[in-house]
């Protein structure tokens, strides 16, 4: 927008819009601090302390600003504070990049180690499926249109396990997407499955394994909520026996 910023008549020279924006960003900062500390330390008490610390720091900064403004040294001080903050942000981010914070699994290739989740999931899939014959439902193979994201994920993880499985075949008779009833049936068998997941939120991108460790053949189906189901032919037979 080519309009010039409006000047207000108050002493600060700031328009109300800029105060509102700064206020909104401050609330964002407070809420973010609470959330960040809460999830990092898993403690509401520390999160609240973080917020209080931020408020205290803000009060101190405000007091310093007032004093420096009276002494007309604000501009120079502000320049150095902001420069230091920017440099601090760069260094802190660089530290986070190199810290073990992002290295939850044991691989040392510098860039690979930043991507723990997909690798972890890949490793799990490979571990579960090594040496087995995968029998995919054709929807998995041909990426049916009903669930786009899932097909992409399925394809990628199928690609990642190709080297470890014995062979990949396709079901002669397609079963199709799992219905709500199918899902309810499968999820009820909690004693028979192990779930590998990168995101438990709304059961997205979850992988359910039904006693596949002792079976040579593994049937692969998928559900609508981006869940993949790996099961023995026996479990699959049980599933098929039910009326659809």
């Amino acid at each position: 927008m080519d309009n010039k910023r409006k000047k207000s008549n108050d002493k600060t020279g700031l328009t109300p819009a800029r105060w509102i924006l700064a206020g909104a960003l401050f609330l964002f900062l407070l809420a973010g601090t609470y959330t960040y500390v809460f999830y990092t330390l898993n403690s509401a008490k520390w999160a609240m302390l973080g917020v209080l610390a931020l408020l205290a720091v803000t009060a101190v900064i405000a007091a310093i600003v007032m004093i420096l403004k009276k002494k007309a040294k604000l501009n120079k001080a502000l320049k150095w504070v902001l420069l230091s903050a920017a440099l601090g942000a760069v260094l802190f981010n660089a530290y986070l990049l190199n810290s073990s914070y992002f290295v939850p699994h044991n691989t040392t290739t510098v860039f690979n180690r930043y991507f723990p989740v997909s690798l972890e999931t890949s490793v799990k899939l490979q571990e579960y499926l090594a040496g087995k014959t995968l029998i995919l439902d054709p929807t998995v193979t041909y990426f049916d249109r009903e669930d786009d994201q899932l097909s992409a994920i399925a394809h990628s993880y199928m690609a990642s396990v190709k080297s470890s499985v014995k062979s990949i075949q396709t079901l002669e008779e397609p079963y199709g997407f799992l219905t709500d009833d199918d899902l309810a049936f499968l999820k009820a068998k909690t004693d028979e499955y192990e779930m590998v997941s990168w995101d438990y939120y709304r059961e997205i991108n979850a992988y359910f394994f039904y006693n596949v460790m002792d079976s040579d053949d593994v049937i692969v189906l998928w559900g609508r909520q981006m869940c993949m189901f790996f099961m023995t032919p026996e479990t699959f037979a049980e599933l098929k026996e039910r009326p659809r």
Binding site: L21, A22, L25, F26, F28, L29, G32, T33, Y36, L82, A85, A86, A89, F92, N93, L96
Partner: peptide, 12 residues
């Protein structure tokens, strides 16, 4: 991580 906190801080 600290990205959006930093954006908010510098944004103010």
């Amino acid at each position: 991580k600290v990205t959006w906190l930093a954006v908010a801080g510098f944004g103010i």
